[in-house]
Amino acid sequence: MTATYPRAGLKADPPSLHPDYASTRTRSPKQPLVVIPHTLSELTGPVYGQESVLSGDSDLTKQHAGEPLGERIIVSGRVTDEDGRPVRNALVEVWQANAAGRYVHEVDQHDAPLDPNFTGAGRCATDAEGRYSFISVKPGAYPWRNHHNAWRPAHIHFSLFGHSFLTRLVTQMYFPGDPLFAFDPIFQSIPDVKARERLICKFELDLTKPEWALGYRFDIVLRGRGATPFEDGSHG
């Protein structure tokens, strides 16, 4: 079957059913997935590039009258495909809890304060080298009702498009050394330890701005078309 984008790398993904994450029990398909070839419908995709975003959209600390409370952070990285090619002019969307571990979302009823100066949503488009950058505050851990005394490790949600319907990715970025990793069924749903660790950003002094903010690097790898070389431009 024609698979323009090799499927081998997908074993990094979690299975649909991970019973420790209770919601997967009634929301994961039981029937086998139907393998389909990659047709025009899968090989094309929307482009929401630089023209879709405003430069201020990537600074989550400047969306209100004052500055949000919390530890100011810079999160930067590069989006490439599996073959190391930069994914250019691609939309990256992020959302997160505030420093106290509370989301603006109306359903979140965690007994922690909202911050009038923090919404927690941002977006940007990657540049010609696949680079992106956000300014934010470090999100707090928060409780959820999956099991007794369940707490999510601090994380930032990421949504990426890439260059086709097949490269779409929604994931979460975690922070180094979080003591909650071992107890979090969502993080632990990824069977391969190395793949799991790719969701943990790295503290970098080079990205850190003196007297201002800590810098974390989070590189993201989307599906690639295999190692066939492309002329510049034909991939984007």
Binding site: D13, D192, L222
Partner: peptide
């Protein structure tokens, strides 16, 4: 190695 997928979670709407 591919960056693995994670759930979109319940709180995506405001973004």
């Amino acid at each position: 190695g591919l960056t693995p997928s994670q759930t979109v979670g319940p709180y995506f709407a405001y973004a």
